[in-house]
Design a protein around this nucleic acid. Structure first.
Lengths: 391, 391
DNA sequence: TCGGATTTGCCGTCAAGCGCAACAAATGGC
DNA sequence: GCCATTTGTTGCGCTTGACGGCAAATCCGA
């Protein structure tokens, strides 16, 4: 961070930024022709050629023979990120730790879910990562080039040093996972809040592709988290704690709608309440959605409407302040929204400034269970993408 | 906008950005030595010298003989923005239109408040600006170089084209003030919401100097507006409507605290209610503050505490989502906060994520009645500052 | 099947602009 | 009055992206 910004204004800086631009394009847009690269960057053909070959020399991209395109003119070679460039990503949860290797092309290379019969500790997590990585290095990742480790942690993470200040469900407090993982693997590690990484992933590869101002809210079993993208950049705030929508206190218009005195959003709008309404105890998201769809129960409909009303106010507040062009809902919030999108849109429109709602779109998250892994990989790739010559 | 970003990556772009950097520094930091410029920019001495002389040739800065500094070494010439570079700023209000000329050094050169006995129309505003400007051009601004007009409008302004979508108190709807002013003056004009411009001003020259993540809330006679700075940049949102905190619906923990069913923040936390509590009808801010301080009335204290509680929730919501390092309160919100800052801080801390409150500061706005004018000038200067070679 | 149109790669040259180093100038301190 | 220190000044060199001419590879129509 900042290393490139410092170089702004020097020739070296221009060069690095141009390399970065190309690599980012190849990363986000997938394989594309050199001709498209020149068009997208506005750089000269010859410049793009030399930059691309430099990236190829660095082993970061591959130049492949042209794709057969049915157009006039000399075909342009295809530039694609090198498949061997990968990141290790980790997502510790209450009942399992998911570890995966993700390519710079955002594809999952290997993925393993390690079920746990107890709450995993930070040190244990580091060991699991190191062990799995060592195993993979001898097999699937034989000739992979691992650039770093990205961790998606369900808790509040200080961005400066990746210290996990508090992850209530893991029962981690001030856990130095980043340092532990770095020590165990010998790789640079980065840590961030899971919902923020979800926002990042949806912004870059999911429902928020190409959108510069969006709000992302994810409803998980244990609460509501989120992230926001402003001007094309994920907002972290001073210390990186931004996006904790679940702890907000939205206004509740109908007193009867309140369940918890002085409760926060995730007390009122919660997966547990939905499960309870449909009479389930544990269920994955599709099961819950199916149960909701199947239920003709009036109480269920009432609970859904109640949660939508409160969610509508919370979203309205965010819209008034941020004027996003898109709201992305994931997890059970997607289920809640999809159940009656028109009602939610109406609730939002009624609770926010009319002009701020113009052109506003509410969508359901697109990326599935790999969302956090992709977001975490993005985190691990960030340095490389920002400055391909960094190391 | 974007004209420079497009050039990123080219040499020309580097040069322009370097010029911009120097000009911005001179603009924000005031007169500074060339030596300091080299230190701040990280550029080479010789580069800074040539850039500075180029800016001087453009008439944008002045190079003055060194200030007598009691330090060893060859004294460094002082670079200051040229005093003749100025912007015209306009702030139409219900009862008056304020017009001023502001230098690139953020000093007010001339200022005139034109009292109105009726609601001013957009066309009338344009005429007033043109007339005043013509008058000034023959006198105070004889050898000024006016780069543009910035308008601070109390309403929702679409950022694309400066259309005032709705300014309730002026009774403007879809008013093309920008085009009108441009036609009347022959100068490029820019329009924005007044509170956003206040945020901009406080960020750059007031209580938020040097702070990269802040939330600004201003309490006016007619409501609560604001702005937010994220990563050092003022947030506009997709269309520029961001910052409408007054329309938010914060949770209200004690049912008795609610005055308006399903009311918004500015229904509950309002200057009118404060005035009413102290038994005034019209009063300027110091008068109101004095009345509050002088009052030993329990009902007044109760109303203050009530408003602080609700404001605390609204701020808590913003803190959870944005994790700013500073909150700046202006207008009657400053009065409300200053009355018992500890209580407000406690309320905020109780209503937001503990980690997000670490290192959080709540301050009162510093800039006085010139805040909007300075913010509007900033708007008018934006193009020039971003690319000194633009025209 | 062939030639024209079109698009793009490739190569050599050019030039803009920043860094660098050596020197000069201006100041404070002993 | 001399030395150390800081900084302006000057000329040079180098990096790197732009540019233009030419060749290559494709599509299309005859």
């Amino acid at each position: 961070m900042g290393t490139v910004a410092d170089r702004t204004g020097t020739f070296d800086g221009v060069h690095r930024r141009n390399l970065s631009k190309l690599l980012v394009l190849a990363h986000l847009e997938g394989p594309l022709s050199r001709a498209r690269l020149t068009a997208e960057t506005g750089l000269n053909r010859s410049t793009v050629a030399s930059l691309a070959s430099e990236l190829a020399d660095l082993g970061l991209v591959e130049e492949r023979p042209p794709d057969p395109t049915n157009r006039v003119g000399r075909p342009s070679p295809v530039v694609a990120v090198h498949p061997s460039v990968q990141a290790i990503v980790v997502n510790p949860e209450v009942d399992a730790v998911t570890i995966a290797a993700v390519g710079l092309n955002a594809r999952i290379v290997v993925r393993e879910r390690l079920e746990m019969d107890h709450l995993v500790t930070p040190a244990e997590t580091a060991d699991l990562v190191a062990g799995t990585l060592a195993r993979w290095r001898a097999t699937e990742l034989r000739d992979a080039r691992i650039v770093g480790v990205g961790l998606a942690v369900p808790g509040q993470v200080r961005s400066d040093d990746g210290l996990v200040r508090w992850a209530p469900h893991l029962e981690w407090t001030d856990a130095p996972v980043r340092a532990l993982v770095e020590a165990a693997t010998g790789l640079p590690a980065v840590v961030a809040n899971d919902a923020s990484l979800g926002a990042r992933a949806e912004h870059l590869f999911g429902a928020g592709r190409g959108v510069d101002d969006l709000v992302y809210l994810n409803g998980g079993a244990s609460g509501i988290g989120g992230g926001l993208v402003v001007g094309g950049r994920l907002v972290g705030g001073t210390r990186g704690y931004a996006g904790e929508f679940g702890q907000n206190r939205p206004g509740i218009a109908r007193p009867d709608d309140r369940r918890v005195p002085d409760g926060v959003l995730e007390d009122e709008v919660s997966r547990a309440r939905l499960l309870q309404a449909v009479g389930l105890t544990h269920a994955d998201e599709p099961t819950l959605a199916a149960a909701i769809a199947a239920s003709g129960d009036r109480a269920v409909a009432e609970e859904l409407a109640r949660q939508q009303r409160i969610l509508g106010t919370a979203l309205g507040n965010a819209i008034n302040v941020l004027n996003p062009s898109l709201i992305v809902l994931g997890g059970f919030l997607a289920t809640l929204a999809a159940h009656d999108m028109d009602a939610l849109e109406a609730a939002v429109a009624a609770q926010s400034l009319p002009v701020a709602c113009e052109g506003l779109d509410i969508r359901v998250a697109e990326l599935g269970e790999n969302r956090l892994l992709i977001g975490a990989a993005e985190l691990a790739f960030a340095r490389l993408l920002a400055d391909p010559l960094a190391d």
